[in-house]
Amino acid sequence: MARDRDRFSTATRLRLLGEQTAARVYRSQTRRQARRSRLTGRAAFLALVVCSMIVALAYPTRQYVSQRNEIAEQQRLADEARERVERLRDEKARLQDDAYVKRLAREHLHMVMPGETGYTMVNPRAGQQPRVEEGGVGQPWYSNVWDDVDRADTGR
């Protein structure tokens, strides 16, 4: 009987050891699954936070870049306007000089000083198309001048 008791106790002990081992394996599996599911949940939450940050920052970043471009464009326009103002100030200073104003009047308005005689040369054929037999088409201007001189000399 003592032997049966030992056998029984050994069998009972083996059964208990098997149950304990099975329980440990089950617990470790559930812990791993729980850990995996927690990491997956954490990863999903982290991904959601990162995506939310990207979406939240995309529009302000785009606006920032756009405004920086507008600022650069406005600075360029201001520099151009400043240069134009300087050119106009120079022109204004030159227009204060009487000799400069007289020269402009002579060049652009064809004005003459009192006592001078002004001449204006008018080309009689200014409105006409050049004739092909004269060779006017495709020739340089000085060739046309020499052709006109030769023609005037022959009386044609």
Rank of each mutant, 00 (worst) to 15 (best):
S66V: 11
A72I: 15
R13E: 06
R89E: 09
V50K: 09
L88N: 06
L88F: 08
G118T: 05
R156Q: 05
R151P: 00
L16Y: 05
D98P: 01
A152H: 09
R15W: 14
V65S: 13
I71Q: 08
A47G: 11
D150K: 13
Y26S: 13
E116C: 03
A11G: 06
N123G: 04
Q29Y: 07
R94W: 14
G136Y: 02
K92P: 00
R76S: 14
R68Y: 07
E70D: 09
E134H: 06
D97E: 12
R156G: 01
R156L: 05
Q74F: 09
V65F: 15
L104K: 12
G135K: 06
A126V: 14
Y100H: 11
A43G: 11
V49L: 09
E91H: 12
R15I: 13
G115T: 13
R36V: 03
V122E: 05
V149T: 01
R76T: 13
G41Y: 05
R125M: 07
E134S: 04
Q29H: 04
Q129H: 07
V50Q: 10
T30Y: 02
Y119P: 00
G135P: 02
Q20C: 07
D6N: 04
T10W: 01
G41Q: 03
D6K: 00
A56H: 06
Q129Y: 11
F45E: 03
A56E: 05
A23R: 14
R32V: 02
E80T: 12
L14D: 02
G155E: 02
L48P: 00
A56L: 14
E107N: 06
K92G: 01
R68I: 08
L88V: 12
R42H: 07
D148R: 05
T120V: 15
L46F: 12
L77P: 00
G115E: 06
Q96H: 12
A22N: 07
Q63E: 10
M113K: 12
R84E: 07
Q29R: 11
T21C: 05
R89C: 02
D153W: 14
S52Y: 13
A34F: 04
S28L: 15
D79Q: 14
A126E: 15
E83F: 08
T154P: 00
R106K: 15
D6H: 03
S52E: 11
G41A: 08
L88H: 05
G155I: 07
W146T: 05
Q128I: 02
W146K: 04
R62A: 03
M53D: 01
Q20Y: 07
Q29E: 08
Q67P: 00
G138M: 12
V112I: 14
A152G: 01
A78H: 08
P114R: 13
C51M: 13
P140N: 07
D147Y: 06
D79S: 14
M121K: 04
Q96G: 10
L88G: 01
G135R: 06
Q29W: 11
A105I: 09
T12A: 11
Q33D: 14
R5L: 04
L17P: 00
K102Q: 05
R62Q: 04
A11F: 10
R125F: 13
Q74T: 10
V132D: 02
